[in-house]
Simulated assay, not measured.
Amino acid sequence: MQDAQIAQLIDEIRKLDAQAAGKRMELALLLGDRDEARRQMKEMNAQTEARKAALFVRRDMGVH
């Protein structure tokens, strides 16, 4: 049970990190900083991919 709780918290943190990167990307675009916007988009995508990968691992292990 504790493993599932840990996995859930990590997933929630990654989701929030992806959302924050999305907001930082929006801000960078408004400020005209395309390089920073690209960096934030990469971070947002990295967090999303990490969440997907962890979901597949949990499913394979039978943890939901």
Rank of each mutant, 00 (worst) to 15 (best):
Q8D: 11
Q8A: 06
Q8W: 10
L9P: 07
I10P: 08
I10M: 15
D11K: 12
D11F: 11
D11W: 13
E12W: 09
E12H: 11
I13S: 08
R14D: 04
R14A: 01
R14I: 05
K15V: 06
K15E: 13
K15M: 09
L16H: 10
L16G: 03
L16S: 02
D17K: 11
D17R: 14
A18M: 04
A18H: 01
Q19T: 12
Q19Y: 10
Q19C: 01
Q19H: 09
Q19E: 14
A21Y: 01
A21F: 02
A21K: 01
G22R: 02
G22N: 05
K23S: 12
R24N: 09
R24C: 09
M25W: 01
M25F: 02
M25E: 14
M25T: 04
E26G: 03
L27R: 13
A28R: 09
A28H: 07
A28G: 03
L30D: 15
L31P: 03
L31K: 10
G32A: 00
G32T: 00
G32I: 00
D33Q: 00
D33S: 01
R34P: 03
R34I: 15
D35Y: 08
D35F: 02
E36W: 07
E36Q: 13
A37C: 05
R38H: 15
R39G: 06
Q40M: 15
Q40W: 14
Q40C: 14
Q40G: 04
Q40P: 03
M41P: 01
M41L: 07
M41S: 05
M41D: 04
K42S: 11
E43P: 05
N45D: 13
N45M: 15
N45I: 15
N45T: 15
A46E: 12
A46H: 05
A46F: 01
A46T: 06
T48P: 01
T48I: 07
T48K: 12
T48G: 05
E49F: 00
A50N: 04
A50K: 06
K52T: 11
A53V: 04
A53F: 10
A53N: 09
A53S: 06
A54G: 12
A54I: 10
L55K: 13
L55R: 13
L55S: 11
